[in-house]
Write a protein that binds this DNA or RNA. Sequence first.
DNA 1: CCAAAAGTGTTTTACTTACACCCATGC
DNA 2: GCATGGGTGTAAGTAAAACACTTTTGG
Lengths: 230, 230
Amino acid sequence: MGDQTFLNNLAYDSVIFGFSGDSLKILVMEYHNTGLFALPGGFINLEEDLDKAVKRGLKERTGLENIYLEQFYTFGNAKRNRTGEMETILKANHMEIETLRWILDRMVSVAYYALINIEEVTPAPDSLSDSCTWYEIDNLPPLIQDHTQIVEKALEVLKQNLDRKLEGVNLLPEKFTMNQLQKVYEAIMGEKLHRGAFQRKMLSLGSLVRHEKQFSGAAHKAPYLYSFKS
Amino acid sequence: MGDQTFLNNLAYDSVIFGFSGDSLKILVMEYHNTGLFALPGGFINLEEDLDKAVKRGLKERTGLENIYLEQFYTFGNAKRNRTGEMETILKANHMEIETLRWILDRMVSVAYYALINIEEVTPAPDSLSDSCTWYEIDNLPPLIQDHTQIVEKALEVLKQNLDRKLEGVNLLPEKFTMNQLQKVYEAIMGEKLHRGAFQRKMLSLGSLVRHEKQFSGAAHKAPYLYSFKS
DNA sequence: CCAAAAGTGTTTTACTTACACCCATGC
DNA sequence: GCATGGGTGTAAGTAAAACACTTTTGG
């Protein structure tokens, strides 16, 4: 490898969740002239903490710092990235395969999911990609390698973790209504929840602060705004 | 690296849980002439699935196949194995450091926990170690690097997963009494449980099969034996 | 018969779910 | 006033916890 600047055989992939218009979405990148879609990922510098590498990558793609991040699984099948797709991508971008041969090597990938407020983000593709776009979670394009499995696992773990620590609030602006929070939960869990029960359960956790009401201009009672008690 | 036979910068560590005498234990290795203790770990062959590598290592240390295994976290701090301890171990074993320099490189470690029936195991140390022994979970020797944190995280995840899939049964023989199962739960959760409630909860899951009674020779009613419905 | 531990029925409690009512707001 | 959605009180239903009674076994 010679003057390799990254750890060999190790990568990370990120499932970046956002929420808007009543549905859960993730960021997906499309590579130039290939019709191939993938999760945003990257590599770890030789002396860089794994967590730091992921944060660095997310900063580049979303512009955000201090993102809510959870590591959820490490994918290590020997052939998981031996699908020929990465070679296609390099060729389509006229990259010299010789100098980038290491990128075709076997990769073990540590997967993270991120929860962000979709309003604060302007997605930025990397040099190999011509777009980095939001896709609804149940309307994804086919993804390369094992990335579809990675998304499935991310969603599974997210569901399990939802209640602990009120993770859902990270998908919303700092102040939000109870209804918005409920919509987030419904999008993630994939089922309708009972309004009264939901409100009581959230408030009983004692982690929400109530603020002044929000006058929406709509023809009904104005809802309270809440924020998450850190 | 030249003719390296393992993936660079990547390792695994395993927290192998066993249960006997009312307490939860894990396997800890002690290195020759150093007084240094560590979790059993290993490396991944170039074309080997990550899961397979871990199973291979466990087979060597316990003699068992088809072990219950869960991957729970990947530890990737840049300096996590830069503590000088591994160098001490190599020196004490009169290893030529030059040919094993790669073992001192930065290592990202994927951590797994295993649940096994302690009766079926005869622990086997590797060539650098002079013992591989059971230690009670709350009476561990100091461990090298970040291995203490790894154990803590393993226990934390194990607690969370206990109820799902009745993981606890993997620590017992194929047939066991309800009392034994309760003791396992108590050891893991670190608290006494109510006998009646425990029995009902376990049976209500519908995953246990009741067999003939076990006559222990003790001066009380004989308990039923149960096994786990696969 | 007694002590010890197992199995199970009953009661109590807490929690979740469902329903309903009232409130605020714009038309 | 009325339709719409928000907040909360009440009741029904369900699940967990505590308690206690009975059973079985060896001494």
